[in-house]
Design a protein around this nucleic acid. Structure first.
Lengths: 226, 226
DNA sequence: AGTAAAGTGTGACTTTTATCACACCTCAAA
DNA sequence: TTTGAGGTGTGATAAAAGTCACACTTTACT
């Protein structure tokens, strides 16, 4: 655990940009940075939610137990608040956050965070904006994922990784086949077959975990038509 | 359009309970109540989002165009803010809200609402709480709906209607078969067959739109196991 | 380097659900 | 009271995706 230096932190959230020096000092003394390795659980479903988790650097999967196994709800890349809904709305975490690569997390005391909301309108407004933006994206993904069939669902997450997460046509898959199936709500085998098919058709190429999107246009078409 | 009397309104949201008399006066002069009939569109996907819509009384479906037709995201019963995410996070509505029964909506000027967030910490906190609670419920439903197969999905929404919306084992279905299929992401025919099956098995009984849950225990079991 | 554990690739078969087709019901407006 | 539009019920068939089985590959650890 490093001693935090929130005042000079260059990974501040948009909301934290609105904090005064005095408030940043309060943050410093009520905040702890912890570093997680790939695969480490940051907070776990069913345990007490006592802090706000802020993802300063890294990549995280948010997932929960569904009726038929694990369900990945979303991937989050830094910077982002990880568990606001589960921390504010329930004493107990409703979902788990797991690091997909080495990640730095700041745990902020809930009281301090709440205090900022009460006393700093700009901070509160940014938090609300953030929650709203996330909900909108969730709705979009929900509508898409629930109506598309497998090729479209797989195409969508590949494009999402390429556009939002890595901003490149070539990237290392952060999820294995089984996790991919948890994300698109399918079976490990079906996802695997789908990736094979995309490869055979020359839409993507894979070398170990290294994935390259060769025909983004086709992938886009498959994603759109479902 | 009735002239609003927010100060003495008995349908205030938890957040609005924290508004001062002065703020309630400001609300009164920046707010309009409009009454919608069953089937009326309250705000529509693709149009400009200019106000916060507060559902004072009634029942509303929130839905959006998906790749394979309409997708119902959630049913909302009064009291509730209808379109915060879409109003705050985007200039254009990302989804449509349609009245399922006669409903009273207050349209609140976005500037006024934003002002409350900036200046009244308790108000802001209640709004954040509300957003978080909704997101948590959405995640839960998302994980369930994406992993269960049809019997479980239909069982789940019937139980949801019974428990959350109508608080009774007997209620009038607010959706027709086609809308039900938009909600559970299936086809009209499959949903219809599923309801027939539940009837044949004595789990529910239907008389026109009037639905009675006869074996809640069985329905619960079907919903749980997927 | 050797070994166990985790992950991948693929065929055969089964289950679930969509689609198509069509008859029938219900209710409101002419 | 007709008429027609929207909604419902159900069979037959086809398509999609899950499951099972098993071999192979990669990774991580000692």
């Amino acid at each position: 655990m490093a001693s935090p230096e929130c005042r000079i932190c260059s990974f501040k959230s948009p909301a934290a940009e609105y904090l005064s020096n005095l408030e940043l000092e309060a943050l410093e003394s009520n905040c702890a940075q912890i570093n997680f390795k790939k695969g480490d659980v940051i907070f776990r479903e069913g345990t007490l939610a006592t802090n706000i988790a802020y993802l300063k650097t890294g990549l995280v999967k948010v997932h929960m137990k569904g009726p038929a196994g694990d369900k990945i709800l979303r991937l989050m890349k830094a910077p982002a608040y990880l568990g606001m809904p589960t921390t504010f709305a329930d004493k107990v975490n409703n979902y788990t956050a797991t690091a997909l690569i080495d990640s730095h997390i700041c745990f902020i005391s809930l009281d301090t965070f709440r205090d900022f909301i009460f006393k700093n309108g700009s901070f509160a407004y940014e938090i609300i904006l953030d929650l709203c933006q996330n909900e909108l994206k969730d709705y979009q993904r929900y509508a898409n994922m629930s109506q598309k069939q497998l090729p479209g669902r797989v195409a969508e997450i590949l494009l999402c990784m390429s556009h939002e997460l890595f901003k490149s046509n070539k990237f290392e898959l952060p999820l294995n086949n089984s996790e991919l199936s948890d994300f698109v709500s399918s079976s490990r085998e079906s996802v695997n077959r789908q990736l094979s098919d995309f490869s055979k058709e020359g839409i993507i190429s894979m070398n170990k975990k290294e994935l390259t999107i060769l025909r983004e246009d086709l992938l886009e078409k498959i994603s759109l038509k479902g």
